[in-house]
Structures are given as C-alpha cells and as structure tokens.
Design a protein around this nucleic acid. Structure first.
Length: 452
RNA sequence: GGUGAGGUGGCUGAGUGGUCGAAAGCAGCGCUUUGCUAAAGCGCCGUACCCCAAAAGGGUACCGAGGGUUCGAAUCCCUCCCUCACCGCCA
C-alpha cells in the first residue's frame, strides 16, 4: 500500500512539539504592521470599526502588550551585551593566564537574569503575536461602509435575465439528464458531495479546460497544477489559519491540510522569497479541487450542488507591487468576468461592504451569475486585494528601485468556481424539449450537439 | 521506509569552543586610470528588532528550526524540518 511519509503515525510528543515550534515561528511575522498600530492607533481603530465587531478594542490591548514587550526586550539586550563583553574578557584573561573566577561568577549571575527575562520576552512576544493574528486587515479607504451583505452595492451588471418558460432548476435538470448523482455520492462520502456522471462529468471537464485556456492564452496567466495538500504554514500565510481551522480538513496524521482553494498553494509558492521588481506582476491560473468542511453552514442555500464539501475551481492569483495592485485587481476581476461573458451568462458585480469583507481582504468584488431555475444570483467568484496582509504573514517581498526590501501585494479571485457555474449554465441553456444547448465558445471543448 | 551525505550572507565557499556578522571569490554599487572596449586598483555592499523626538549614533539577535551543555556556541549534544544520493516499495 502506498503510504506517503507525512501520513505515517507520529508520536504524540513529536506532533505536539511540531505544533509548538510552528506557533513560535509565527511570532516573527505580523499581520497588521505593528508600527502602523503604534504610530496611528486611532486610524487603525476607525478602519477596523467599519467592519463591525470588536476588533478595534484589541488595538489597545496590543499596544499595552507591545509596550511591555519592548521594555523587557531593552533590558534583555542590555544584559546580553554585558554578558558578551565579560565573556570576551574571560577569554582574554585566560590567554594571559590570569584568574577569571570572579568574572565567571558575575557572568553566571547575569545568565540567570537573562533566562528569566528571556521567558518574559518570549511570553510577551507570543501574546502580541496571538493578538495580531486575530486582527483582520484594514478595509481599503474606498470600500463602501456597511454592516452586512444587504449593504453591498451593485457595481455593474452584464447581459439580461433570459426569458424562459417554467425553467427547471439544476437539480431537476441534472437528475433528469443523469448529469450527476447526489444520492449515490452521499453513499460514498456523506451529504454535501457530488458525483458527476456521463455528460455532466464531461461538461465539468470542458468548463475547466475552457477557462484555463482562456486565462493562459488570452489573459497571460501561467498555468499551475499545485499539490492539494499543504502545510500549516501555508494555511497561516493565506489567513485560513489560525482563525478558521474548524472550516478546514486537517489530516489525522501529520500537520497537513486539504487546501480549501488553490489560493493557498499558489500564493505560497513564493513564500519567504525576495522577488525582483522586473518579475512582477506574477500571474497564475490553477485548477484544483477545493475542500471545505463549512462546519455549521448547512441549511438554506445548500440545495443541490450549490454548497458542497468538495468542488472544482479555476483560481487566479497575482503577486504585485503596492503601486499596481489596485489596477491589477480591476483587471483580474475583468478576466474572471470574461468567462461569463463568453458563455453568455447574465451576471452582476457587487462590491463587499466593510461589514461583509473577508478577514484578510482590503477590497473585494463578487461576481454573481443569474440562476434562472432559482431566480437568484449565485456567487461564482470573489476577487480580492489583500494588499500586504498575506505577504507579511508569509514574508513575501520584492526589491524595489532603491534596493529596499518591501512586502508584495497579493490578490486572487475565482475564475471561476465550477458547481455554481455548471448549475447556472444548464439552467440558462435548457430548451423546451428538455435538452440543454452548449454555448458556442464551449463547443470546441464539449461538442456542439448539446445534452439530451 | 532504509542507509549515507549535507543545510553558512544574492551566489560559490572557508570556518570544530573566545577578539566571527562570519575569510576568500563572484555578482552589485561608487571612484581612479582610460581614445573605445577590455583590464587593473581603491572603497562600499545582509536582515530584523530595540534605544534615541528625529537625524547622527549606539545596542541586541540571526550561520535550516527549536532546545541543551558552557563564563562564552556557526563550532559540542538532543529533537525536528528540509535537500541530495543509493536501495526498497508503489500509481
């Protein structure tokens, strides 16, 4: 039986140690810049306040811990300096054959103080890190202020709602034409899984191929086929962890996770690197399955294939300089929209208001495709600019014109998520005789005959 | 999975207990020489954090990560991670 190394059982002690060292490593990476918090606490608080919630209150706590931390650190450095100097003195005296017992005793004393202060400093460090890891990104200045999804403004829309006579929804259509089998999928994996069958599986594959070709050939993205399993550090880098661990699938053996989106492996591809300005922006397109527990989100909105634990997605990722990230954000969104346009599907673009913005995002556009069967808009893409929030966590930098290392900006957006696109597509192109037409641009990938 | 060898600055690579943040070379930046090119010579050239109102300046940490021994660790010990090679297994 094939058994990768990371799946092998490890002792509890080993695993605990790993988790522990991983946590300590985090201490050296901040999410929001501590200096910004220090220098402009009121600005940071007022921006956080627009998200709702009590994150602004955490700022005072961070400042308090930060002051304590620095005080301890300064004292520690002083002692370290003393020890260093005296130790060298011992070396010198020994070389000359002089007695050193007295100095050695003093240094030993200093050493004791150092270990004590060391503990204090490390503790304060960790405390500060935990606090910072839990604070979301600042919404961009232009982001519309609002408290929930009802306040997300519609930015633009494309196409028209089609006029169909008594359209079926995708579950009815898919069942009738044997495009997927939800009941048998449950037999395999439980509720919330799809098994595409026959023409349905073929349509899924055709859509993936169509989108990848579009983005790589016409929009200039580099195709990636990354691992689906990623280390904890990567999940922290793109902000799925530590805050949203209950939504992720972790493997029982080893600290490794099923990626909830290609954003994780692809954005982390250059983690801990210093890129040259000339190689930016980097643009990646990747198809992967995505795995999400979405614990506790069952209920409404989950009918059929709309919300599942495993789904396919083509993801777009960009790494840019701070100067260009907002222009790149617009073009990334346009690249995703192009898929819907070429498929002739009516959609609208909304911008997330501050209260609905994701944890790491500074600005987000959602693309919502029209579902004739449900008479509703379905989210098929979320295009976000994280500014330097993720880059800070993963220590992803570039060397600017002056030779200074600065954090990159990272962006991503679905281009697009498959099940909902699939659903909207078959609903839109159903014909009165019960068959489904294939839009022209997709015909080279699927065939022109349609599904019947 | 087994065995072995390794992980040092942008790169190559020295360094086995003290004055090593770390030789040397390459690359890069500046200057000198020069008709041009080439070459030669000289100098500069890591990151993070802390102190300082700021600049200047000073300090601490960092040689894969964490811990330990020691007056003192890149150097010794332990654990882990990763890379490479060979063997085994496997789609």
């Amino acid at each position: 039986m094939f058994k990768p190394a990371h799946l092998r059982r490890q002792s509890a002690a080993t695993t605990a140690l790993r988790i522990c060292t991983a946590a300590l490593r985090l201490v050296f990476q901040a999410m929001l810049d501590i200096r910004l918090i220090r220098e402009q606490p009121d600005f940071v608080k007022s921006r956080l306040l627009t998200r709702g919630g009590d994150d602004a209150a955490k700022i005072d706590e961070v400042l308090k811990v930060d002051a304590e931390r620095r005080k301890a650190e300064t004292a520690l450095q002083q002692l370290n300096g003393d020890r260093k100097r005296l130790s060298k003195e011992i070396g010198g005296k020994r070389a000359k054959g002089e007695a050193t017992e007295e100095i050695e005793a003093r240094v030993r004393e200093i050493g004791d103080q150092i270990s004590l202060l060391n503990e204090q400093t490390a503790e304060a460090d960790e405390q500060q890190k935990d606090l910072l890891l839990g604070i979301p990104n600042l919404p961009q200045a232009s982001a519309p202020v609002g408290k929930d999804p009802s306040e997300n403004p519609v930015v633009r829309s494309w196409g028209e709602k089609p006029e169909l006579k008594e359209p079926l929804d995708h579950v009815a259509l898919g069942t009738k034409l044997n495009l997927f089998d939800l009941e048998r999928a449950a037999k395999l994996s439980g509720s919330g899984f799809i098994c595409f069958t026959g023409a349905g599986a073929r349509l899924e594959r055709a859509l993936i191929q169509f989108m990848l070709d579009l983005h790589t050939r016409e929009h200039g993205y580099l195709e990636m086929s990354p691992p689906f399993l990623v280390r904890r550090e990567c999940m922290v880098g793109t902000t799925q962890l530590p805050k949203f661990e209950e939504d992720m699938y972790g493997l029982e053996y080893g600290e490794i996770f099923l990626a909830p989106t290609a954003e994780v492996p692809v954005t982390n591809f250059h983690r801990e690197e210093i890129l040259a300005t000339s190689e930016l922006p980097k643009k990646f397109a990747a198809y992967t399955p995505c795995f999400r527990r979405e614990a506790g989100s069952a209920g409404r909105e989950t009918r059929g294939i709309i919300r599942v634990h495993q789904f396919d997605k083509v993801e777009l990722v960009k790494i840019t300089t701070p100067e260009t990230s907002y222009a790149e954000h617009e073009s990334l969104t346009a690249d995703a929209e192009r898929v819907l346009q070429l498929l002739g599907l009516h959609y609208r673009v909304i911008e997330l208001c501050t209260g609905d913005l994701g944890f790491g995002s500074a600005k987000t556009y959602d693309l919502e495709v029209w579902s004739p069967g449900q008479q509703a808009y379905l989210e098929v893409s979320s295009c976000s600019n994280f500014e330097d929030f993720q880059a800070r966590r993963m220590n992803l930098r570039f060397k600017d014109a002056e030779g200074k290392n600065r954090f990159c900006h990272t962006l991503n957006g679905s281009g697009l998520a498959l099940p909902r696109l699939f659903a909207a597509l078959i609903e839109r192109y159903q014909r009165e005789d019960g068959s489904i037409a294939i839009p022209e641009k997709l015909q080279p990938y699927f065939g022109a005959a349609g599904i019947r």
